[in-house]
């Protein structure tokens, strides 16, 4: 059986390598891609969509259908991680640790023991990792707003500079992950609960696909943003530019939420109770 697998892999691999022989050379000016599609994009992007960044225009407008399914792939990655790791059955941990905030004394409550009242004097701390670090918390609090502003900048400036929904979404997700690291998982869950995360990554894909469907309702092709001109009260060229922005925002929201849910699941082994 091992040999059969090896031979199958070898045959498939050599077939792929044989296939690459037929490829045009790198940067060949006579190859089909360089003679038909690329010159059109390079010459016509500005007058078609009024977007200076050709990459963004190709990604979100000309090839918008591909990018919609890329977003769907991100979405299904988040869903798959949720199905694989999330433990729905709530199992109580063996012991819990509580800290008295004023004195710093830590209590260990065994299974079945009486928990302290959820008053302000006691705070729950993690069993393995118990950072009580004012420096890291303060730096986290200080730096997170700047990270988020930068993320919004990257999402909104996808037209004019490198960036866009995917990159900005990852940066935005990283700010939430930083919050969870610098504080703890439970305080991060208080700010950004699991339900809210699930809502956001569904919303992101919905915005993208919904924009496409709206274009159909307005009598154009799927994801042909020039149809949005009647709603947005602009000319069709600017409408394509705005359509790209709307789609990028959808992608950004989806990617951000998926990053957060991946972190939550991986760090707490699906229990959403204790984690880094």
């Amino acid at each position: 059986m091992k040999w059969f697998g090896f031979i199958a892999v070898f045959l498939c691999g050599s077939l792929f390598i044989y296939g690459t022989v037929e490829f045009p050379g790198w940067g060949d000016p006579l190859s089909p891609t360089s003679t038909h599609v690329s010159p059109y994009y390079i010459e016509k992007t500005m007058e078609d969509t009024s977007v200076p960044n050709i990459v963004t225009a190709v990604l979100a407008d000309y090839r918008g259908y591909d990018t919609m399914f890329e977003t769907a792939v991100i979405f299904s990655a988040g869903i798959a991680c949720l199905f694989l790791l999330r433990q729905m059955k709530r199992k109580k941990t063996d012991f819990r640790l509580y800290r008295h905030t004023a004195t710093g004394i830590t209590f260990r409550i065994e299974k079945g023991g009486k928990l302290p009242p959820t008053a302000k004097e006691f705070e729950r701390i993690d069993g393995l990792w118990t950072p009580y670090d004012l420096i890291i918390k303060t730096t986290g609090r200080f730096i997170i707003p700047f990270i988020q502003i930068f993320a919004l900048y990257v999402i909104a400036h996808g037209h004019h500079s490198p960036g866009g929904g995917f990159q900005g979404g990852v940066i935005l997700g990283a700010s939430f992950v930083l919050f969870a690291i610098s504080h703890d998982l439970r305080s991060a869950l208080n700010r950004m609960s699991e339900k809210l995360t699930a809502f956001f990554y569904t919303l992101g894909v919905y915005i993208y696909a919904g924009t496409g469907a709206l274009c159909i309702l307005l009598g154009a092709n799927f994801l042909d943003y020039s149809a949005l001109a009647t709603i947005l009260f602009v000319d069709p060229v600017t409408a394509r530019s705005h359509g790209i922005l709307i789609v990028e925002i959808g992608v950004g929201i989806a990617v951000m939420a998926v990053m957060v849910i991946l972190y939550y699941n991986l760090v707490s082994a699906g229990k959403f109770d204790e984690g880094l």
Binding site: P131, D133, I135, I136, T139, F142, I143, F146
Partner: peptide, 20 residues
Amino acid sequence: VFVFITGPTATHAIVDAGIR
């Protein structure tokens, strides 16, 4: 400015983790 704030914090956190 940002590196001046985050760099020492990161070093502090790493040392803390090492002690722990």
